Simulated scan of single mutants.
Amino acid sequence: MVEELNFFKRNGGSSVVDCTTLGIRRDVGKLKKISMETGVNVICGAGYYEACTHPPNMDTLTEEQLVSTIVNDITRGADGTDVRCGVIGEIGCSWPMTDNERKVLKATVTAQSETGCPVIIHPGRHKDAPSEIIRVLQEAGGDVGATVMSHLDCTFFEPEDVMEFASLGSYLEWDFFGLEVSHCQWADIDMPNDAMRIKMIRQVLEEGHADKVVISHDVDTKHRLMHYGGHGYSHILLNVVPMMLNRGISQEDINKILVENPKK
């Protein structure tokens, strides 16, 4: 990790959002150590992932108890440390959404309102999943404008579907940059490559949504790190940005996607 982030920093990177939440082996102590060694900001996530990773007692945990855990991780410190989380997420949802996942979403809204923290959502593998999640958030009083919907690469494949969802006002995240294989291990779909991701993003930008686009790699396996022969954390900076420029995306919009929108 230190090797990867030092290279990332040398190539212009300054911050990484780590979306490892409770249930998928979050280790904020290690994140702090890595951040201190490299000088790269690491923002860690609070909350819960998909139902299959929930604690055994999730059925009996109340919404208030979930709120307390999330707020504590943001305001006091997570995993028994003094490291405070900077985002709520990646909050995991299945398709169809389970009752406990819906409970977590509602707790997320309350924690967001108490802390002002942004929310990052992992939608279920269906094109209707993101809009259903937004409805739940809205009904609970959530701030959709401070919510990021992840994994649009493997959720929307037609421009009209993306545009319809974009009208709801959340941030739009294409986050599998560097995955250049059509096989998807999570669902029976054909994954896009980077060129197709850029084409979809350009269409979204042309429709006036430049202030709501963010991108990432979603590195979650060793083989995607440079040390093991992968593209690493610098692929977007070194390879994707030049592709974007060559395909007609302006430097101004790229700055929004890589700097201004994440900063907000």
Rank of each mutant, 00 (worst) to 15 (best):
E132Y: 08
G142C: 15
I133R: 14
V136Y: 08
D161N: 01
E164T: 04
L137P: 14
E164F: 00
F157E: 06
L172Y: 05
G145L: 00
Y171P: 06
G169L: 03
W174D: 08
D175G: 05
A146V: 02
E160Y: 15
H151F: 02
E158P: 04
A146P: 01
E139I: 05
L137N: 10
V136Q: 08
E158N: 12
F177Y: 05
F157G: 06
V148R: 09
G169D: 14
I134V: 15
G142H: 08
T147R: 08
V136N: 04
V162Q: 00
H151L: 00
D143W: 08
V144N: 09
A166I: 12
F177I: 09
T147M: 06
V148N: 10
S131L: 02
S131G: 03
E139N: 07
G145E: 00
F177S: 03
D153K: 02
S170D: 03
M149C: 05
V136G: 08
V144E: 01
F157C: 02
G169C: 06
S170K: 10
G169N: 07
I133D: 07
S131Q: 05
P130A: 10
F165D: 07
Y171E: 04
S131F: 12
D161A: 04
P130L: 09
D161G: 10
H151V: 13
M163I: 10
C154Q: 07
I134C: 15
L137Y: 06
E164M: 07
V162T: 02
Q138F: 10
E132L: 12
P159S: 02
V148M: 03
E158G: 07
R135I: 12
G142Y: 05
I134F: 10
D175S: 08
E160K: 08
